[in-house]
Design a protein around this nucleic acid. Structure first.
Length: 596
RNA sequence: GCCAGUGUAGCUCAGAGGUAGAGCAACUGAUUCGUAAUCAGUAGGUCGAGGGUUCGACUCCCUCUGCUGGCUCCA
């Protein structure tokens, strides 16, 4: 379906099929119009901003004295259904710019007037449905009756043209589908996402918490969360050792002058105010780079020393505005799995390739197999030599191509100090999360005068690669929790095995098993409470412990245990030593599934 | 930071201008039990914090703080 057009110039006929993404966008765009139509009917005097289709639905921005409250959404939705039922034709109308301006002026739609003045050509395309007219390029569905399966979701604030200093508008979000089945599936997916929300699971599984008295965005890692973190860090270290990294520990604080020199005070706005001590200003670090650079500068370097790869789980603190904080995904204190690589021009491509492969190796092991990859190139405002930018951008591109990854080029979206590669992982619900970032840094190399002595005996500037693979441990943990819905793979699970004795008389036997598992490097736990098996099993299942071992008279006599696998169920008796080996194997292989 | 919503027991949630209630969890006792909740009893709250209005505030008003959904920004 599509909009029929009788324009002489526009001979092109849009034939959109329901299955296509374009068709869905059209439907949603029309849904946005329908919503604006309903809003203007219900709340005369409201001004309309923009109302596009977005990834999961649509929104429309409104300017109105009184804010919309949740109850208004119900009324608007009802009105929308009414207008949809009337099946009003949606027509394309072309005005001259003057006509269009007059029309919207008369309607008191000043925002639209502003838009037409900016974007309108000689001829201004509008779409009309009954009393509602909108400045819009279309296309749209033929009539309001085509819009059947939609739901308004939320109200929020939004700035006119995205400008924080501009007018504050009210945005209403909704979604719309061709088929009821699809709408229901979407709503179910939202419910599903809520169930695996890391904030909810974090509390339920006792992984981490926040505390109002401590401050927003500051994470308390509980023992179970800390165990997962430790597992992640251990594995991360092993892989970095394999790739020839050295490790650094550096302080969380430095004189403000360091940050002046690095340019952070000038260019970076997420810094906490400095701390004055004995007349000297200190700054809590928002980044690790200057410290690593100082290690580099602690002695003279030769071209033979390069590349130098130095990694640190570097904790940083950034003042994030209160409204942007979000569970573990966006915090004020976090630990980056950071590293800086100092290399020569001729090593650049190889080093970047190595980093990409290392990133993929790590992400795959954690179970992430789909990625969105971006290459961001030189923005207008930048530092560094053009020649270096070109060389580096080429190296990034060449390295990416060699990995066989599909990537998108974001032209001009690089940071002012260098081009970069970003890798976002897709989780179990196909949501995308920023993890890996690989950035060239011409700024620090220059400001801290990084040098090495070349083959020719002269000083040269090394390239500085700044990279984080998991991103931040906090965010990565959050992503892991949501990806697995708290059902961590065996090698990651904070408690891997729980031993459940049926009655008191089985406690001793159970304890020897627990001890044996612990001695073999497994994270085992024992439930000695005087409760019925059913109760203990339920508890263990809720805690999402992957392996449950139940021991009663039979098992004590046979020297065995009965296995129950989380979410799978009872698997019968197992022989301890054999089983122990299997578990150790599973841990060692970092298996993502339970193979027992 | 901005717009909107929200904060009642450890958790999930009722209630309401006259000093708070349920279920689960916790604790105590009984039960010694075979694959997702045994029974009974007890205890638990400065109703997010501070200020104001009122004879009286958990309830109304203001400020702060945390959280939620967005905007803007970002690992």
């Amino acid at each position: 379906m599509g909009q029929k057009t009788h324009l002489e110039k526009d001979k092109e006929i849009h034939l959109n099929y329901e299955g296509s993404a374009e068709a869905l966008d059209t439907l949603r765009h029309s849904s946005a119009h329908l919503m604006a139509h309903a809003v203007l009917d219900l709340f005369p005097g409201t001004q309309t901003g923009i109302g596009p289709a977005v990834e999961d639905g649509f929104f429309y921005d409104f300017l109105r004295d009184k804010p919309f409250v949740p109850e208004d959404l119900e009324a608007i939705e009802k009105k929308m259904r009414q207008i949809a039922q009337e099946d009003i034709p949606i027509q394309k109308v072309v005005f001259s710019k003057e006509e269009a301006l007059r029309l919207f002026q008369e309607k008191g739609q000043e925002l639209k007037v502003e838009l037409i003045e900016e974007k309108g050509n000689k001829e201004v395309t509008c779409y009309k449905q009954g009393s509602f007219v909108d400045f819009c390029l279309g296309p749209h569905v033929p009539s309001t009756g085509h819009i059947k399966h939609f739901k308004l979701l939320s109200v929020s604030g939004a700035y006119w043209k995205g400008d924080e200093k501009g007018k504050q508008l009210q945005r209403i979000y909704g979604t719309s589908f061709f088929k009821k089945k699809d709408l229901d599936a979407y709503l179910t997916l939202m419910e599903e996402a809520k169930k695996r929300d890391h904030r909810k699971l974090g509390a339920e599984l006792d992984l981490f918490s926040f505390n109002e008295n401590l401050g927003a965005g500051l994470v308390l890692w509980h023992p179970k969360g800390a165990t997962v973190r430790h597992v992640i860090e251990n594995y991360w270290w092993e892989e970095h050792i394999k790739d020839g990294y050295g490790f650094l520990y550096t302080p969380h604080l430095a004189k403000l002058d360091v940050w002046r020199k690095s340019g952070h005070t000038e260019f970076y706005d997420a810094m906490y105010p400095p701390i004055l001590s004995e007349g000297i200003e200190y700054e809590i670090r928002p980044m690790n780079c200057p410290f690593h650079v100082m290690v580099y500068n602690s002695r003279q370097r030769s071209y033979r020393d390069l590349p130098l790869r130095w990694a640190e789980m570097g904790t940083v603190y950034r003042y994030e505005r209160s409204g942007v904080l979000h569970g573990l995904m966006r915090v004020r204190g976090f630990t980056q799995d950071d590293a800086h690589i100092f290399c020569r021009a001729d090593q650049l491509e190889e080093e970047i390739k190595k980093v990409i492969f290392l990133a993929l190796r790590l992400l795959k092991t954690f179970g992430f197999k789909d990625y969105d990859v971006f290459l961001s190139t030189r923005p207008e405002k930048h530092v560094g030599k053009l020649e270096d930018w070109d060389k580096a951008t080429q190296a990034l591109e060449k390295a990416l191509k060699q990995t066989g990854l599909e990537f998108r080029e974001d032209e001009g979206e690089g940071v002012f100090y260098g081009p970069k590669i970003d890798i976002k992982v897709k989780d179990a619900l196909n949501r995308s999360w920023q993890c890996t970032t690989i950035q060239l840094d011409f700024n620090l190399a220059e400001r801290f005068q990084l040098r090495y002595v070349g083959e020719d005996g002269k000083f040269h500037s090394p390239f500085l690669i700044h990279r984080a693979l998991l991103g931040s441990l906090e965010r990565f943990f959050g992503i892991l929790i949501e990806h697995y819905k708290g059902n961590f793979p065996f090698w990651i699970a904070p408690v891997q095995v729980i031993i459940i004795p049926i009655a008191d008389r089985h406690n001793d036997y159970a304890s020897t098993l627990d001890k044996k598992f612990k001695e073999n490097g497994l994270r085992s736990q024992i439930d000695l409470r005087r409760e019925k098996v059913g109760y203990k099993i339920r508890d263990a299942e809720i805690q999402k412990i992957p392996v449950l071992l139940i021991v009663g008279d039979k098992e004590v006599t046979n020297g065995t245990a009965s296995l129950r696998i989380h979410t799978i169920g009872d698997r019968g008796e197992i022989i301890i030593d054999e089983f122990l080996d299997k578990l150790k194997e599973m841990s060692k292989n970092k298996s993502l599934t339970v193979n027992l």
